[in-house]
């Protein structure tokens, strides 16, 4: 009975590790084959969320089921990666836009100021209409 449980938990941990590895392979194929950078930005999200996530879930299960000690470090790493991945993707896309995409190719923003990549942000306070009431 006890041996069966160990076998099941080993299969579970091994399955999560293999899933993580397969998704990292998918991500590297995407890195290799996709044509433009905007397409390529899509590929590493697989290895961030599912690849590293699978490995970290496998690691949590390993410490919980086999070493019988609960560990939360993996959860911290996953949370940190999930929080930072969109920010880095946004920054890389902005870098690419500044480098390769011209301002005229983009649609209008529908606001007073243009795209943040090309125009400076509206400065608070500086060019202000004197007719308007004072700010508190």
């Amino acid at each position: 009975m006890d041996q069966d449980l160990t076998l099941i938990s080993e299969i579970l941990v091994a399955a999560f590790l293999v899933i993580g590895g397969v998704f990292s392979l998918v991500s590297s194929i995407g890195m290799m084959r996709l044509r433009t950078l905007m397409q390529r930005l899509h590929a590493p999200t697989k290895s961030t969320t599912l690849g590293v996530g699978g490995v970290l879930i496998g690691s949590m299960l390993y410490s919980l089921l086999i070493r019988e000690a609960l560990s939360f470090h993996e959860l911290l790493i996953t949370l940190f990666l999930f929080m930072t991945a969109p920010i880095t993707a946004n920054f890389i896309a902005k870098t690419y836009m500044q480098d390769k995409i011209h301002k005229d190719e983009l649609p209008d923003t529908g606001r007073d100021y243009g795209w943040a990549v090309y125009d400076d942000p509206p400065m608070p306070g500086t060019p202000r209409d004197p007719e308007l009431p004072e700010e508190r």
């Binding site: 941990v13 993580g20 991500s27 590297s28």
Partner: peptide, 17 residues
């Protein structure tokens, strides 16, 4: 079995690197 899975996953991530 975990050792095999570890080797496979390490190979995949190494290839990705």
């Amino acid at each position: 079995m975990i050792l095999y899975a570890l080797t496979f996953a390490s190979a995949c991530f190494g290839l990705g690197l």
